[in-house]
Amino acid sequence: MSDEIVRTLAEALKSVIDPELGYNIVDIGLVYEVDVKDGYARIVLTTTTPGCPATDYIRQAVETCAAAVPGIGAVDVTMTWQPPWTPDRMSEEAKAHFGVAA
């Protein structure tokens, strides 16, 4: 059940985009951790660069989307910039979309 909620949550987070890149935060690798226990979701996020003016909007959107997932009652979103994000964290689809070189 927990794995299923995590999968559903990860899918839900795909509706949140990084506005500069214009691509969902899951596939560009901004979601570092997703954990759900007893209806309590803990999500660790980063941004492509520290100080990004979109940071709070992305965090709030993640909270909203996560809270909308059936079975999740409370959400805790933590921002981190360690380790720093790199394009290597992108999914293969995202890499193909941006033409990210190996």
Partner: peptide, 8 residues
């Protein structure tokens, strides 16, 4: 447009 999931 990027749409929210409305999962509920």
């Amino acid at each position: 447009l990027v749409r929210p999931p409305s999962l509920k």
